[in-house]
Structure formats: C-alpha cells, structure tokens
Design a protein around this nucleic acid. Structure first.
Ligand code: SF4
Ligand code: SF4
Lengths: 136, 136
DNA sequence: TTTATATGCGATAAAATTAGTCGTATATAA
DNA sequence: TTATATACGACTAATTTTATCGCATATAAA
C-alpha cells in the first residue's frame, strides 16, 4: 500500500553500484545484474529509462556500459522515482490545482487538506534524501 | 507506488462521518455508502473489519448501524491502516529484526539502513495524525 | 409472530498495477 | 568480421487492489 517498487529499489541499487565504481571501467548491465542479482532484462529497461532522463550515460558495444551523469549528491530519491515514471501521490487529489476531474469528491472533501499536508511532508522527505545518502 | 488505498480512504471518510454524527442516530452502512458515494458492499466489509478490531460498534437489525468505539483523538491513521490489514512497509526488510528470509540481500545491502530511516519517519507521521486531525 | 431492514461473512470476479520475459535491432571496440 | 554491448517494443505472468454476489443472522417495529 505504501511501498517502494522493485523497479525503484533495483534502480537505486544499480545507481549506487555504478557510482561506487566510476573510477574503474564502466559497468555493463550484465555485470550489474549478475553482481546484484537483479533480473537482467528488467534492469536493462530501467537503465534505459535512466539514460533517457539523463541520469546515466550508456556506451554501446564491446566494453560498453553505464556511467553516472549527475552528481550523486544532487540526485534525490524523488528524482529517481520520477525518472522511472512512478510517483508518490497519496491520493488522486494530493497536488496543488487538482480539480473535480481528479476526484469527484474534491469540492466537499473534508480529508483533502490533511492529505495534502501529509503529501507535502512526504515529498520533502523523498526530495531531500540523495543517492549519496542512500547508504549504510 | 506510494499511495493510500481506496479502502483506507473510504474508511477514513466513513469513520469521520460516523464521528461527526454520533449525537444523532447511528448511521447504517447503506446511508454512509449513499451519502459518501462509496460502493456499498465494499464499505460494509471495511466496516466489518473495523468492528472486529474494536474501532467501531455495530448494531444489527432495523435502525441499526455503526458507532465509533474509540476516541477520535486517539485513533491514528496507522491504527486504521493496521485494522484493515494493510501496511506501510516500504520494502521487505524495513522493520527491526528482518532476516534473510525477508530479503536474500539483507546481509550485504547498502541501502537497507537509509530505508529503515525513511520507514521510521513515515511510521511516525502516520502514527501521529489522528482521525480528529484528518479534517479541513 | 411476521416483516422490513440491518449487519456478517466467505467466495469470487474484475481491474489495475507491478514484475519479469522475449525477440530483434543496432552500436562499437577489438 | 566478430563478440559483446545497449535499445526497445511487445508480451506474459504474478500480485495487489477494488468491487460484487449470495446467503446467513440479528433485531426493532408493526
Ligand atoms: S478529494 Fe478527498 S476523496 Fe477525493 S482523492 Fe482527495 S482526499 Fe480522496
Ligand atoms: S535488504 Fe536491501 S534489497 Fe533487501 S529489501 Fe531491504 S533494502 Fe531492499
């Protein structure tokens, strides 16, 4: 109900792994998948999305692989979730400017306001934690 | 991905509605369902769960209905989620005492600790907001 | 005692989301 | 030219969430 999808978890694991090995050769998705035990096909697709969003860089061909393109101090958990086209929207109305197309109840809903408060706090939390901090 | 299920939303709406009408006759699930536009069968089941967990009281028969059994200042959002057998577990390991049956990666996972931190904050947030505060 | 109106509850179905797989095309260094 | 990589759309499977159905039981009122 409130959980981080495998896609996001895999992506964080992979991004962290890439970040920690930048000095060496770039990591192939095959190697990342093997080392971290993440389904290869799935990981590939996730990394492709991250490429499109400019978070990592890919190099095709032999000895190719992935490199981080952004500062791991500036990449937030929310950025990653966004890049994967996922979201952390608690309810259909929990953003500024929602209207009754988002939820028919919106105009006389007595719980929207507290939900918005919750949402703001969660957004903040997810936006403040960076890839760099996602580590023991 | 991070969202509050309809079940929880419906439950909050209903509980709040019940709480606000306690002075009057007890509300039947039919009336609540009609007034709040919540699928009747679904709402009934939700209320039944809440009865079993001691959150509301039910009165069968004609002129029956539901009444709140707990102080709306003491019923937290987390209590409600628990009562519905849902949870806010971010990942398979984000609780104290998780072991490698919960996640095979647990013993050398570099992101578990920050996930646990996040989890603690979220638990706190959901535990601090009460039914009473879930209002405009 | 009958009737109308409630809840109780298990089973099931439908819908939506999430997770995982497959086939094929393309890029590129050796 | 070949081996090894990513790119990517289509598809399938699994899981979770949402909704429905049918029947049993309770109870106040007529
Ligand atoms: S308006 Fe109310 S019922 Fe509709 S999504 Fe927002 S909180 Fe939920
Ligand atoms: S141990 Fe790591 S990989 Fe496993 S559930 Fe926890 S955070 Fe995710």
């Amino acid at each position: 109900m409130i959980k981080i999808s495998k896609s996001v978890e895999y992506s964080i694991l992979a991004l962290k792994y890439i970040a920690d090995n930048e000095n060496f050769a770039s990591l192939s998705s095959r190697k990342i998948s093997d080392d971290l035990n993440i389904p290869y096909d799935l990981l590939s697709k996730l990394l492709q999305k991250l490429v499109r969003k400019g978070i990592v860089q890919s190099q095709q061909g032999k000895y190719g692989g992935y490199n981080l393109l952004v500062d791991s101090n500036k990449l937030s958990l929310l950025n990653i979730i966004d890049a994967l086209d996922e979201n952390i929207q608690l309810a259909n109305c929990t953003f500024d400017g929602a209207n009754n197309e988002d939820c028919a109840r919106i105009n006389n809903c007595y719980i929207r306001s507290p939900f918005l408060n919750l949402q703001n706090k969660i957004n903040k939390m997810f936006n403040e934690i960076t890839l760099n901090e996602l580590t023991n």
